[in-house]
């Protein structure tokens, strides 16, 4: 814990560096997200987007730099479960849901609740939890498939279920890795709408390759290259930046 509140940002990265076998995946990266903000992060392959998410969620420890949550918590000392309990939800690029559980159980496991062994041994589903699951099922359009195994869902539906699971966690920050990958155009646009809807109540960071999708999000964009931020601003602003054009858009 950091004793005094050092920043008002929800998530604050400063001078973060991480290298793997000499390769600097993240190079003195500084980055800030405010409460309720929607942010898109773009960058070519190997720009350090996934490593940045790994660092924020405690999966990877940075070599240097500060990672501060809500101005008080040092995230570099947290592991994945700690970060999830603090209120950071993460969606993977490849949809990861619990295939042998039903859609309902997937959401139940994600719902904000006690996470200890003893609590889960003794817990039973409450009315409030079931009501929340009903709401989420409507939101992610899977009411019909409530009792089916997640393995039987289509790719797009799995993506939706995973987003539903993130919402069930009720996190303050959602890290969403390429949510539109493998989706149809219509699904992509619906996903953009949903993320915009979610932002406000939750801060959302979206890593994305699909420029149409980023335009649809209509939010502040951060461009990463070689582990550092090279441009930040509206999509028009960064698209006009010659360095961005050189490393990313121009190709």
């Amino acid at each position: 814990m950091i004793s005094h509140k050092s920043t008002n940002a929800l998530l604050y990265l400063d001078g973060v560096t991480k290298s793997f076998d000499g390769f600097k995946a993240i190079n003195s990266l500084s980055f800030m997200i405010n409460k309720g903000e929607l942010r898109a992060v773009i960058g070519p392959n190997g720009a350090g987007k996934t490593t940045m998410m790994d660092i924020v969620t405690g999966k990877t420890k940075p070599d240097m730099g500060d990672v501060v949550w809500d101005g008080t918590v040092n995230l570099t000392e947290c592991d994945e479960a700690d970060s999830a309990r603090l209120g950071i939800g993460r969606k993977f690029q490849k949809p990861t849901v619990f295939e042998t559980h039903t859609v309902e159980d997937n959401l139940l496991l994600a719902l904000k609740d006690e996470r200890s062994v003893l609590a889960t041994l003794l817990s039973s589903r409450s009315k409030a939890q079931l009501a929340r699951i009903d709401e989420l099922l409507v939101l992610i359009r899977l009411e019909e498939r409530r009792h089916e195994l997640a393995a039987d869902l289509s790719h797009g539906q799995k993506q939706w279920l995973e987003i539903g699971m993130l919402l069930a966690q009720d996190p303050q920050l959602l890290l969403v890795d390429e949510p539109a990958a493998g989706m149809t155009d219509e699904e992509t646009m619906r996903t953009a709408d949903l993320l915009k809807e979610i932002a406000g109540d939750h801060a959302v960071v979206v890593v994305e390759h699909d420029m149409a999708f980023v335009k649809a999000l209509d939010c502040r964009v951060t461009v990463l290259h070689q582990g550092a931020v090279i441009a930040e601003g509206s999509i028009e602003h960064v698209s006009a930046d010659p360095r961005v054009v050189e490393v990313y858009l121009g190709r």
Binding site: D79, E80, A81, A84, V97, F98, L109, R115, Q169
Partner: peptide, 8 residues
């Protein structure tokens, strides 16, 4: 790892 990221 999904389970970890859910906070378990």
């Amino acid at each position: 790892s999904r389970t970890r990221f859910l906070g378990y």
